[in-house]
């Protein structure tokens, strides 16, 4: 019978000490909405749970010096209710709006979502598109990792033994940017995405694309930027046709898989269908008329 010892350190220092003391037998616990399930299914079998709930420096959303800094323990509900995020980083608000249910969002954290490394994580594509940096802290000191390098494979991350994700640092988007994340799922709640699409666009006054970022999740083993598609739209007028063509390019960069949840073919079709829609919403959020011609 599994016996778990629950620890509740009140500082990062104490958390590190516990991690070091218990080594492999310890797991960090945030909201537990991924971890507890894995423990019940016995795919993870820790003896010690180290809760991060009482460590003050992990709990806040901070916006200063042109940068958004989200503590690892910030819940999805806090993100959902942050006016600042909804205005300035709309795609991140999109990502949590339909994540699980209110009950799940009340406890589940963005840190847990990222550190779990699941291809289906709803915040993954948005943070990739946002070019976030992850602040990792550990016995060897603090380091910062680009989020794209953090995801290494399904369930695999760059997190080293004994390390804790402290915060997600997100640079402010350029002036006049619009963004959108589409979670493509079967149900309206309590469902994982079959595909995640994050789009950020910066148009100039003539509706020509100055910058575009397209990040996809579940279009391959890890979330990634569709760089060729981005390059394709950059410098072009932002019309529906251009986005449809860009979506085709994005498909060529993708490698989705067939599982019992859906087929690779359907996912590819959805990339085609939804990139233009995400772009459309992103542009609408820039608050300019679009696609007049």
């Amino acid at each position: 019978m599994r016996r778990l010892t629950y620890h509740e350190p009140e500082s990062l220092k104490d958390a590190f000490a516990l991690l070091e003391g218990h080594g492999e037998t310890a797991k960090l616990l945030a909201g537990g909405t991924d971890l507890i399930i894995e423990i019940k299914q016995e795919t993870k079998t820790p003896d010690h749970l180290i809760s991060l709930r009482c460590i003050p420096e992990l709990q806040d959303i901070d916006y200063s010096n042109g940068e958004l800094c989200i503590g690892a323990m910030v819940t999805h509900r806090m993100i959902e209710q942050s006016k600042l995020i909804r205005e300035k980083f709309s795609l991140l608000a999109d990502a949590v709006d339909n994540l699980g249910s209110v009950q799940v969002r009340n406890v589940a954290t963005i840190g847990g979502n990222i550190c779990n490394g699941a291809p289906s994580a709803d915040t993954a594509a948005p943070v990739v598109a946002l070019g976030a940096k992850l602040v990792l802290d550990g016995p060897a000191g603090e380091r910062q990792v680009n989020v794209e390098e953090f995801f290494q494979g399904p369930g695999k991350t760059a997190l080293a033994a004994g390390e804790i994700l402290r915060a997600i640092r997100i640079p402010t988007l350029p002036q006049g940017a619009g963004s959108c994340y589409i979670k493509h799922s079967r149900r309206k709640a309590m469902d994982l995405p079959l595909l995640g699409i994050a789009v950020i666009i910066v148009p100039d006054d003539n509706m020509v694309c100055q910058e575009a970022r397209i990040a996809l999740s579940l279009a391959g083993p890890i979330p990634f930027r569709a760089k060729k598609a981005e390059a394709f739209v950059t410098g072009k007028p932002l019309s529906r046709e251009i986005w449809e063509q860009a979506a085709q390019v994005a498909v060529s960069e993708s490698n989705p898989r067939t599982s019992f949840r859906t087929t690779a073919d359907y996912r590819k079709k959805m990339i085609c269908a939804l990139i233009p829609r995400a772009a459309e919403t992103a542009l609408r959020r820039v608050n300019k008329a679009w696609m007049k011609g």
Binding site: S101, K188, M190, D191, R261
Partner: peptide
């Protein structure tokens, strides 16, 4: 059974 849980065996939720 491949989808023996409420995530993968989908019934409608209230919003649906």
């Amino acid at each position: 059974v491949l989808n023996g849980n409420f995530l993968d065996y989908k019934i409608l939720t209230f919003p649906d």
